[in-house]
Design a binder for these strands. Structure first.
Length: 586
RNA sequence: GCGCCCGUAGCUCAGUCGGAUAGAGCACCAGAUUCCUAAUCUGGGGGUCAGAGGUUCGAAUCCUCUCGGGCGCGCCA
């Protein structure tokens, strides 16, 4: 409907250009928006005010000329000039009711745009290090990323959902050693646990797993393990050098086979766990991209070579540096360390290049707000590689803070004292969690009220929306019990009977759905969809209370059923895009 | 110190490309069910859009400064 009016405006503007009222080079796209109040019609355009100066005419006068030159449309009843020069468009009743026909015909494809392979994008999100279970901080990134991916897909952008697995770094070594130490403990050895190691019960679980498979095969005497290690922090040493020495000792004693066993079991176990967690949260990935693989396939070398060829590398203090400061970053970055190992950033660069080489139109990254330093860094990398930096898009998700009984729940990750995503799901349910995570703009800090999310009352917006859906289903169940059936054809023929104010409002809300999907995708803003669904549910509940659907008059009954069925389709589709279920009964 | 983000009703937040009288939920007050689920609906009060200047037909939105809050500035991952 909106597109139709935009087209009318363009036609009028082209006409004015031919007549010489406007310059040929006038490339202004018509600005059309929904009005805030029906008194101003359905849509309003400020085009006359924008172009008034160039046309050398007062806005209102120009507006009149535009209206005169506009092709006639069966959908528009009339256009009016208002205020300083707005053009307000009033729609015909037919145009408004057509939406019901469209929805019933298109089903859950209503408002969607067919996928265009040229616009394929990759969305990378969560990508938490596999060193422990996901916590509630990851939940927001997961919910946001998954919803955004679905919305982009609905908007015509095919999406690859990717999880970047950091399975190659020192943190993974620390994890493996932590498991080994717990394993030794289970074998009966008494050892001091390094301060930098991973605590948390899941480490014991993995250790138990290893022990079940291999028994005491990797047991060593406590003395043998710790003798000669540099002191830990609390013993007057340094926790980093202590844990590094620990890692070396583990490699030495276990040999590559043994070390590998701990390393791989740990990563596999945690990744499986993460995967299960996300799956239970309705979040699925198309691609689990391994950092290790990046190294094994020579992708890192390849990327470094490319930077070198483009003249962005230099050596200093035995390390290889990337001249990022010349490409907009605040400082130069090390790519290859003095010890010959590549940095984490080198992997990032290689991964980005890999995404470009796979032919994605864009690579979207969803990071926590603490990663904002990455924007300049990765952008510099894109430039250095000779890639178009606009194909790189980083979206920052602000932190979520949990509240219970009106009090903030503090968290600290290292100590193992955090609320896991699983606990959250068990406490409030997947649906409520998904909705609460995306109901606010991603660039806004989020206060997550656990009590509200749990409440099964009118305070909880999730149930409000789901209830609207369930109510519609219930109406159709009642229809069956009355031994009646819904005849959509009769309803379609009677669309002119949808005339009450509540019906008009509901129709209007339904007709906005395609615009909402488009705008949520373009602005990377799933929260707009969440708000829309609340508004749609509001219109439905108001309608429900104002009119009886199951009436004797066959025409009225069927047309109303058409309308609420259309509402049901949109509610279900919108909830689906947000990863929330649409229950048939509550 | 430098950089990024944020500040809108009592609370939590929307507000799209700068548009018309700044909106919603919760909370508060007053009402609605012989009928499709009351997890619902109807009505009401509540604002110096942090503050000050600027840009213009027009600013919550753009620019500058001040104040307040969050985060980041490793040869860590």
């Amino acid at each position: 409907m909106k597109e139709h009016i935009e087209e009318l405006l363009i036609q009028a503007l082209l006409h004015l250009m031919r007549d010489g009222v406007l310059n040929e080079d006038c490339d202004i796209a018509p600005q059309l928006e929904r009005t805030r109040t029906p008194e101003h019609g359905e849509f309003a355009s400020n085009i006359a005010m924008v172009l008034a100066k160039r046309a050398g005419k007062p806005p209102r006068e120009l507006a009149q000329i535009i209206i005169d030159k506009m092709p006639r449309s069966r959908q528009v009843s009339h256009a009016e000039i208002a205020g300083p020069g707005f053009i307000n468009f009033y729609m015909n009743h037919v145009a408004l009711t057509t939406v019901v026909k469209d929805i019933l015909y298109q089903g859950n494809m209503y408002g969607h745009v067919p996928p265009n392979p040229k616009h394929e994008v990759t969305v990378e999100f969560v990508s938490a290090n596999p060193t422990g279970p996901l916590h509630v901080g990851h939940g927001r990134g997961a919910a946001y990323g998954a919803s955004l991916a679905s919305i982009l897909q609905a908007s015509g952008y095919p999406v690859q959902r990717e999880y970047y697995v950091n399975d190659n770094g020192r943190q993974m070594d620390i994890l493996a050693v932590s498991v080994w130490l717990r394993y030794l403990e289970l074998c009966g050895e008494r050892l001091r646990f390094p301060e930098n190691g991973y605590r948390g019960d899941y480490i014991y679980n993995i250790a138990r797993e290893v022990r079940q498979e291999t028994g005491d095969k990797w047991r060593f005497k406590g003395q043998e393990v710790t003798d000669g290690l540099p002191p830990d922090e609390s013993e007057g040493g340094n926790r980093e050098t202590h844990i590094d020495a620990f890692i070396d000792r583990a490699r030495e004693l276990l040999g590559s086979a043994g070390y590998q066993a701990f390393f791989e079991t740990s990563v596999d176990s945690i990744l499986t766990d993460i995967q299960k967690d996300l799956s239970g949260f309705g979040v699925e990935f198309d691609h689990w991209f391994s950092e290790k693989e990046l190294e094994d396939t020579g992708a890192i070398e390849h990327a470094i070579e490319r930077l070198d060829q483009n003249g962005h590398l230099y050596k200093k203090d035995g390390a290889t540096w990337f001249r990022a400061s010349e490409l907009g970053d605040e400082k130069d970055r090390v790519i290859i360390r003095e010890n010959g190992r590549t940095t984490y950033f080198a992997s990032d660069i290689a991964y980005f290049l890999n995404k470009m080489e796979r032919g994605f139109e864009k690579a979207l990254y969803i990071f926590g707000a603490d990663h904002h330093g990455y924007i300049a860094r990765l952008r510099a990398a894109a430039l250095g590689l000779g890639e178009d930096p606009d194909r790189l898009e980083i979206l920052l998700v602000q932190f979520a803070v949990l509240y219970r009984d009106g009090k903030k729940i503090s968290m600290s990750t290292r100590s193992g004292q955090f609320i896991s995503l699983r606990e959250l799901r068990e406490e409030v349910g997947s649906d409520a969690a998904r909705f609460f995570y995306v109901m606010r703009s991603h660039e806004q800090h989020l206060d997550f009220d656990l009590d509200l999310a749990k409440s099964r009352t009118n305070e909880n917006p999730v149930y409000y929306i789901q209830y609207a859906h369930a109510r519609i289903c219930s109406v159709f169940r009642n229809l069956e019990q009355m031994d009646e059936t819904h005849n959509p054809a009769i309803g379609e023929a009677a669309l002119n009977l949808l005339t009450t104010p509540n019906e008009t409002r509901l129709l209007r809300a339904l007709s906005r759905y395609p615009e909402i999907i488009e705008s949520s995708a373009r602005l990377r803003a799933p929260h707009q969809l969440a708000h829309y669904l609340q508004a749609l549910a509001t219109e439905f509940h108001a309608y429900y209370n104002s009119q009886q659907f199951l009436v004797d008059d066959e025409n009225i009954r069927n047309v109303r059923l058409n309308l609420i069925l259309a509402t049901r389709i949109v509610l279900a589709d919108g909830l689906d895009l947000l990863g929330i279920s649409a229950p048939e009964a509550m």
